[in-house]
Structure formats: structure tokens, C-alpha cells
Simulated assay, not measured.
Amino acid sequence: MKPARGPSRRRADGRLRLAVLSRNKKLYSTRRLVEAAKQRGHAVKVLDTLRCQLVLARDAPRVFYRGAEVGRIDVVIPRIGASITGYGLSVVNQFDMMGVPTLNNSVPIARSRDKLRALQLLSRFGIDIPRTVMCRYREEVPLAVEQVGGLPCIMKLIQGTQGVGVLLASTMTEVEGMLDTLWHLGQEILIQELIAESRGKDVRALVIGDRVVAAMRRTAREGEFRSNIHRGGEGQAIELPPAYAEAAVKAARVIGLEVAGVDMLESKEGPKIMEVNSSPGFEGLEQVTGQDIAGLYVEHAVELARAHAAGWSKARLI
């Protein structure tokens, strides 16, 4: 059996070839990653995820882009939008099959996109989360609301991002009406505890490798309970207490992500993990912290590529 092709050998000058999977090269995070890679002397190209054609044959997975076979790549940085999760996971997995390291591979990305699956894993490994219930029948709703601490409560789509599909219900009529509508549309919904003391605020920590490299507290604009920057929230740079930093790193490890945006609520009991994002935007973090987040992102990708190449070369000698 012919082995799958391994990663390309490093150039003598140390330059690596990076690929960023992104639908739009003008997006802030994509543009910054390209700038950071070039500043460090690496070659980088942006591949529109949906334009990647996947070719499969016996022991010979290949990727074509706009009609031409993709050349040798040392590491892939996925920036997979929620709307193309399925195809994006297939593209990431194809590069993995070709022996190209990816900064977040397909399995943990899939885990992070399914909010229930992610919460199940976090709960299993002893990470504190808001109380959460999933049910499917109307007669079960009153008990579900009681199990999360009563009203008001939060309702979330299992798959959603940037605050989309997150609703606040203050009465049982609202809960039942929202559920009826969303169930009719074929959506699965989580009912979740509202952490009253953190209402309108949360903490975003960016984990790269085994440490938190930046963090900010996000505060919702007036009249809005969702604190996402994309929904008008404001960010303030903060130094995370050790308990919060440890929780963020552990959450990323449990999901299996090399890079993750971990969203936490500040409760009376300490950090409660809300969500682990596999393609975190970092425009807000760069603005409020003044840090070169894109550079840290690229440097970690380069470290991963070099470690992978060294391991593959060693395997070839055995």
C-alpha cells in the first residue's frame, strides 16, 4: 500500500508555506493572518474553502483549487464560517489525510460547532458550565425551565455564532412560543440558566497552545443582553485571574483545539464556560489589548508545522 504523501520539506531558508482557509481574504482576521505570515518571511495563500475541490482515490487524496492542484503546503489555518461547517470540515479533513498539519483539525471543530456536544464534554471533564437542558416535547418545558433555575432563562440554537440564535425569555409564554416556532423550523434548542450577576457581560479568552494569550471583558450595549462585539458590545482588556485562565485552557484541551476563543461568565462560584469557538475573530482583542494576536497565531502554526515535519521525517527513518 502506497503511503499518503507527507508534509513538504522545509526550505533551506526556513520559509514555510501557509494556507488560510477563508471565504473572504478581506475579512479582518484573514487579512491580519496574511500580514503576520509575510512579516515573518513565510509564503501564504488564502484559499476560498468552497472553491477547494476534493479528489479521492485509493491512498491518494488530493485538493484542487480553481482548476489547479494545490501545491505543497506546510500548515493550514482553518477559518471555517458556521454557514459552511459541513464542507469546511471535509476540506480540513482532506488536508489532514494528505499529511498536512492543520491548526485545529476537523473533529474538534465539529465538536465546538455543536453546542450540546461541547457542553457534554466540558461537563464530563468537570468544567463548570451554566445549567443546561435539552428537551423536545412541550409538556416537558415547565420542568426544563425549573431545572435551569426558573425564569428568566436563556434559549440557544445548538448551532449558532456571534450571538445569533441566543434568546432571553422572561415568561413561560415566551419560552413556549419561541420553542414552538423554532421546533417547527426544524431547529434543536437548549434551555440554559441565566447567570444574573453576569447579565450583559462575559469574558472572551483567546487560548493558543497551552496558554491564554489575551483576554477581554465584553459588555452589551444598552437594551441588549448579548455582549458580542458583532452585536455592538464593547470590550475592555483584562488580566485573567488564574482560575479563569486555567478553566479556559482546560476547555480548549477538552474540545481538542490548538486555538480557541473561550467565552466565560463571571458567576459567584467562579468561571462558567459558555462556548468554545474554533475560529475566533480577534479584531476586538487586538484593538483593546494592542497585542499582535495574528502574529501569535502564525507563530504557533509555524511551530506546529515544524514539529510535525520533524516527527514525520523521524518516522520515515524508522
Rank of each mutant, 00 (worst) to 15 (best):
L89Y: 02
V254W: 04
V262W: 00
A196Y: 10
E69W: 07
A60T: 15
A57P: 00
H300E: 13
G160I: 01
M98G: 10
M98W: 13
C52A: 06
A245I: 02
K26T: 07
E283D: 12
G6V: 11
L121A: 08
M264D: 07
R253F: 00
K314N: 11
S278M: 11
I73G: 02
M216K: 09
E286S: 09
R226T: 11
Y87E: 01
E174W: 11
P280V: 02
A243H: 06
G232E: 05
G311A: 13
H308L: 01
V55W: 11
C52Y: 04
I73M: 09
L119N: 10
R211Q: 15
L194D: 04
L27W: 03
T132E: 03
L47C: 03
G150R: 03
L33H: 01
K115E: 05
R131D: 03
M274V: 15
C135G: 04
P108L: 08
V249F: 05
R5S: 12
Q39I: 01
L116C: 02
D59Y: 09
V203R: 02
Q53L: 13
R138T: 09
L285Q: 11
L206I: 09
D202F: 08
I273W: 14
R23W: 05
A60Y: 14
L304G: 00
A307K: 14
S279L: 04
M216H: 09
V298Y: 03
A237L: 07
Y244G: 02
C135L: 15
A220V: 12
D210M: 00
Y28Q: 06
L151A: 03
I158N: 01
W312K: 13
T181A: 11
Y28G: 06
S198Q: 08
A118Y: 01
Q287T: 12
G235P: 00
Y87C: 00
G223W: 02
A169S: 14
A205D: 06
R10F: 08
Q120I: 13
I189S: 00
S267G: 06
G281A: 15
N277F: 00
R23N: 10
A245S: 10
R31M: 06
E239R: 15
V91R: 10
Y28H: 14
V166T: 09
T289P: 05
H42S: 03
R199P: 01
G233V: 13
S22M: 04
V164D: 12
Y297F: 14
R11C: 05
V262P: 01
R199Q: 09
V55Y: 10
L18W: 01
L296E: 15
K250C: 02
V145Q: 06
R62Y: 05
E239W: 07
K26R: 13
G126Y: 10
V298A: 03
P130T: 10
A248V: 09
G67K: 10
G261P: 14
R58G: 02
N93R: 11
N24T: 04
